[in-house]
Design a protein around this nucleic acid. Structure first.
Lengths: 188, 188
DNA sequence: TGTTGTTTTCAGAAATTACTGAAACAACGG
DNA sequence: CCGTTGTTTCAGTAATTTCTGAAAACAACA
């Protein structure tokens, strides 16, 4: 299978960026190919298009599945497995954020909770406090993420588009400006 | 220099997570050590604490400087360079986001802009459209980030703490709900 | 200028990660 | 049960990244 110059360049870019994104070249290229593909592809299509070994493609697909970045499809009267990426870009964004959080943040949060349990040695007073502060910061951010993740896409996009106007909700000292008839609130 | 059990565990964790975060073990451990340190450390302190070679520590410090994650300090009557991490956690968060964006997103945005310039081959119509859509999505998100990045920390934290209440600003169809007496606004 | 204390560079060694081909495995139709 | 078609596993190899020690470069100063 031949790949147009446009696709080629996109695919190669994803391959190169892969290492920065925490995936390898093969995974990056396979994802890019599927992302642009006009119809679902099977493993051998991918081998034909990219020239990796069959087993490498198999590994890459497994990795992409573990990231929830591809969907598996079966076609009528065909035993082969076909793969696509979701059509909805916002779904892809959500998936990426969730998976990265799972891999890059959650294990550290667990560790920080564990560490801030134990009563510190007197010489570690400051370090212990700093660990607790980091834990609180991460908890605050993940709580925010949990809140946003519940919104439907429309609402998220609307908030995104508010951009700088969000600042008007809050005064410079971090106090909420009352919206409609709710009571003013001060921060923790 | 000996390191307490608490610090040790924190440092080892950062070393292990390093590869997921796009830095290597040495860089992760050096950062963790500095993060918990009660006072600025020089390169030899780090060698003594972690047991890496002097040159490896030098590389790691250079890498951390390229990430803007450490501050360089000089002490009275001492030629050596001492390093610290910023005290302000939110500053660290901003730095991390900025640097990751610079490394993981901006190059791709540049590439996508380049690719969506060229007039596509007829067979690439759909792929071209998908690239353009991806470009727009990333532009929308980076624009949002630019907006938020201008806020002072107080304001950001207040927005973070609003969490789920942000959803009330916007109705289910993505329309802004008028705040106070401003005119209703519709999106894009 | 030379001396001393420091940081940086760099070529190669060590460790890790990515990739391959061959074999094992699974599902299905005769 | 066998053969066909497709997927996965795995041991070994290739490629890449990390780390080191030695040497070079640098900066401050007598």
């Amino acid at each position: 299978m031949s790949v147009s110059a446009l696709r080629q360049e996109f695919i190669l870019h994803f391959g190169e960026m892969g290492s920065r994104w925490g995936i390898n070249r093969t995974v990056g290229q396979v994802y890019a190919l599927l992302f642009l593909a006009d119809e679902p592809l099977c493993a051998d299509d991918i081998v034909a298009a990219l020239g990796f070994s069959r087993s490498n493609v198999s590994m890459a697909l497994k990795e992409l599945q573990s990231w929830n970045l591809v969907r598996l499809r079966h076609q009528q009267d065909d035993r082969r497995e076909f793969f696509t990426t979701p059509d909805d870009f916002w779904e892809i964004v959500r998936t990426l954020i969730n998976e990265r959080r799972k891999r890059e943040i959650d294990p550290t949060l667990t560790k920080l909770r564990e560490l801030s349990m134990a009563e510190p040695d007197p010489t570690d007073r400051a370090a212990h406090a700093r660990i607790a502060e980091l834990r609180q910061l991460i908890e605050q951010m993940t709580r925010f993420h949990d809140d946003l993740a519940r919104f439907e896409t429309e609402r998220l996009v609307a908030i995104l588009n508010m951009g700088a106007r969000l600042g008007r909700l809050v005064d410079g000292a971090g106090k909420l400006i009352p919206i409609r008839r709710s009571k003013p609130q001060s921060k923790g």
